[in-house]
Simulated scan of single mutants.
Amino acid sequence: MDNVLSFSRGRVPLLISMPHPGVRLTPAVAAGLVDEAQELADTDWNIPRLYDFAEELGASTLAANYSRYVIDLNRPADDQPLYASATTGLYPETLFDGRPLYKEGQTPSKEERARYLAEVWTPYHRTLEEELARLKAEFGYALLWDAHSIRSHIPHLFDGRLPDFNIGTFAGASCDPQIAERLQAVCAEAVGYSHVLNGRFKGGHITRHYGQPQQDVHAVQLELSQCTYMNEIAPFDYREELAGPTRAVLRQMLESFLAWGRERYGR
């Protein structure tokens, strides 16, 4: 399997991880999907475009090219569940709304899935780990922003309408508490937007595993409601009139994250 990820090295101690914008499928996955899954509705659509200001900030970026239907990069390799409520696993078998993802008897084989772990999941996490190590070696610390998005209404996963900005810090374990305070302050000043800290989305495997504040690696997950920047139904069009103001808030959040690091570590 080739072209599994896109990586760009930056010049500041921030890495933006995007594990779910990919739309590539393996032949086995493509052949087995039910008709309702063919549009790949559970993708984090347009996230690389939304965050394309990262280059101006000097941040490193890492994005997956394969769909989460192949393998979910924000789940641990042993597939231990992260949430007590409804969720999807390392190898998703259902859509977000709870319907089966595959036609009966057409899920990829164990051998196929082992290949996805070795050739998609592992390279992504190796790159993530190596870049965080490089940033820490150069700056003395590293900041990780795990960028996600999701439809604003999915009754199977959460009640009602999801807040616009869902900040996850694994209940405070993945970063210094002052970071969460600063990010919430930015959101509170953003007129017309709602936000929550450690609500339905507290951070997946990437935030939980790599966020080690005691070792000067601080991680935050942002689950962004897709109605803030795009159409939530196919063909999932990016809407600049929505995305522009949302990008401004995202940029303020990331600038605040970087400013905290400079103040805390002196560089």
Rank of each mutant, 00 (worst) to 15 (best):
Y102L: 03
P123Q: 03
S149M: 05
G32Q: 07
D35T: 10
P155N: 01
Q252W: 09
G105T: 03
A63G: 03
F257R: 02
Q212I: 13
T43F: 03
E223R: 01
A137K: 15
A114C: 12
L15C: 05
R182S: 07
Q80Y: 08
P19D: 03
E56A: 13
P76L: 05
P245C: 10
E240T: 12
A41Q: 11
A63D: 02
H153S: 08
N3P: 08
A54N: 07
Q214K: 13
G58V: 00
L157R: 02
E93Q: 15
E36D: 15
A41M: 10
T107K: 14
E119T: 06
P177N: 06
V120G: 08
R262K: 14
S60V: 08
D35E: 15
Y102T: 12
L128K: 00
Q221P: 08
P19Q: 01
L143S: 05
G266Q: 07
A54G: 11
S67F: 00
F257H: 00
D35H: 13
R75F: 09
G98A: 07
Y238P: 11
Q38S: 12
T61L: 06
T107Q: 14
P108G: 06
L82Y: 06
K136E: 10
Q184G: 14
A31D: 11
L101P: 04
I154A: 01
W145K: 03
I150A: 05
H148Q: 08
L101E: 06
F236W: 04
R264T: 10
G105E: 08
G105D: 07
E255M: 12
T94I: 14
E131S: 07
L197A: 07
Q221L: 13
R208Q: 12
